[in-house]
């Protein structure tokens, strides 16, 4: 919360405390290394994420994509190095970021509405909180299901509720860990459009871990390829790709097709076979 009030001072247009944190924040990785016991997962990741951009993080399975994301949320502590949101280092659970997990992770005994409200920042007034939750439920098209329990809605709806819960925090950084990975192809495309829509309405820096190269090309401003580099153990920044074109992008453009081949090669897949 200290963070939030500093921001409201620097940002003189917005004085309301709750609105103040709704500003996209840059994220910096400084030589971030993480090992679990003997196993080195991340090895000296250096990277700067610009405020407000959508960064997709791709890489081979088990290369530490999720670990990198969890380090931004404060769910993991790097073995060495620093993660900074804006200019403050992340120590412990960060209040300026919000996380949407691969599974919805909703409380089964609460309604969708109460689950979304769980994401509201501490100290939100009752009326203001309820209004914000209603607005978010509308954005993710769940207003009609607000009073249902998670088990009474589909997987896509539960994942949208999880997204709304993260947005309720008015995060400066939105962390998405393969949020659409478990959804069917059609639902996934709809969710991608929804995410872009939401990004336009709620300014936030988005870090999106995905194993889907097409998803990365469709959503991201830049794609970070995380992979073991230079014979080191543990993953580092293997490549950074700027994705051209404004969103929404034509899913069948030739330019994206070429990038897709590059990306797949980066990931060690022979693109001519796919």
């Amino acid at each position: 919360m200290i963070m939030t009030s500093t921001l409201s001072v620097s940002d003189d247009v917005r004085t309301d405390d709750a609105v103040a944190s709704e500003r996209a924040l840059p994220v910096t990785f400084e030589s971030v290394t993480k090992s679990f016991g003997e196993r080195i997962v991340l090895n000296g990741v250096d990277f700067s994420v610009r405020a407000g951009e959508v960064l997709a993080i791709v890489g081979p399975s088990g290369c530490g994509k999720s670990t990198l994301l969890r380090a931004v949320a404060g769910l993991e502590t790097p073995t060495s190095g620093t993660v900074r949101i804006d200019s403050s280092p992340v120590t412990g659970l960060s209040e300026t970021s919000a996380f949407a997990f691969q599974e919805p992770r909703l409380l089964p005994w609460q309604t969708i509405r109460r689950n979304v409200a769980l994401g509201l920042p501490k100290g939100t007034g009752k009326a203001a909180g309820a209004a914000h939750v209603d607005e978010l439920l509308e954005h993710v098209e769940l207003s009609a299901y607000a009073d249902h329990r998670p088990r009474e809605v589909s997987g896509g709806m539960a994942q949208r509720a999880s997204l709304a819960r993260a947005l309720a925090r008015r995060p400066g950084v939105l962390l998405l860990d393969e949020p659409f990975g478990a959804l069917d192809a059609l639902t996934r495309l709809k969710m991608q459009d929804l995410l872009l829509d939401i990004h336009a309405k709620h300014p936030a820096t988005i870090l999106l871990v995905t194993h889907d190269v097409d998803e990365a090309l469709q959503l991201a401003d830049r794609i970070l390829v995380l992979s073991p580099t230079g014979g080191h153990e543990g993953a580092g920044v293997a490549n950074v790709i700027d994705v051209p074109g404004t969103r929404p992008r034509d899913r069948s453009s030739a330019e994206l097709g070429a990038l897709r081949s590059t990306l797949l090669e980066n990931l060690g897949v022979d693109s001519h076979r796919h």
Partner: peptide, 20 residues
């Protein structure tokens, strides 16, 4: 997983106990 999610949204101590 539920506990971690709740913690990520700032729930701690007694509130985490009674909410989750």
């Amino acid at each position: 997983n539920l506990v971690e999610a709740a913690r990520a949204f700032g729930l701690r101590g007694v509130r985490l106990l009674t909410t989750v």
